[in-house]
Design a protein around this nucleic acid. Structure first.
Lengths: 104, 104
DNA sequence: ACAATAAGTCAACAAAAGATGACTACTCTA
DNA sequence: TAGAGTAGTCATCTTTTGTTGACTTATTGT
């Protein structure tokens, strides 16, 4: 999969880049679950019936690269990885609430 | 059969619907141009190099069905059709500005 | 030692989204 | 009355996105 990068070129349409980052089959649900608490890969897969490792992995990677999720290795037992909403990521969820209020 | 045993996680995600409506290859640009004034089909095609009649037509139809654009027949010469941002549509553009300010 | 869990990657296939070019139907101008 | 402009539709092709199932590497529980 290609990595997402905001093109400086499309200065004339700022919404394009961010919309590309937050759209995708599973990303809205990932945000919703991330609000409730830290995400873990296999658990997330089980919470998204019909999804695939591939697309969940790609979604998590893209959201992390965009700075909306942070990935941390938790050195407890069992050793595992957690994805948390970053500050930016929380802003996005607030905007989702606005969208819902005005439009939905 | 489909009724029982729905997805564990179908606490329906409100952002999902609206995100589906506003995402697509040309929709962000269509919003940007709609802010500047009423849209017309052929003119829009010329303003979106690389786009196709098909996808522009589909985008306009979906945005209209979602109540973000209004379609009006202008009975002047030449007889033509105009797409305007609705109140909802304007709210969406404001949210794009927020996205850009917080995230971009 | 062995199986299970955690977090993935990869190649192949399928489904969805978008592009292309032909065609329709109506209006307007010369 | 012919040609250009308006706003599309439709079938077909290509590109992008997502799914499937096999495989990997390290950690943990019995």
């Amino acid at each position: 999969m290609t990595t997402l990068h905001l093109k400086e070129n499309s200065e004339h349409c700022p919404a394009e880049g961010i919309l590309k980052i937050i759209s995708g089959k599973w990303k809205p649900q990932i945000f919703r679950l991330a609000i409730q608490g830290p995400l873990r890969f296999n658990s997330l897969l089980r919470q998204l019936p019909g999804s695939s490792k591939q697309s969940v992995a790609v979604a998590l990677r893209e959201l992390e690269e965009a700075g909306l999720l942070t990935k941390t290795v938790v050195k407890e037992k069992p050793l595992h990885i957690e994805y948390h909403l970053s500050e930016k990521g929380e802003q996005v969820t607030h905007i989702f609430v606005s969208l819902q209020r005005f439009i939905g």
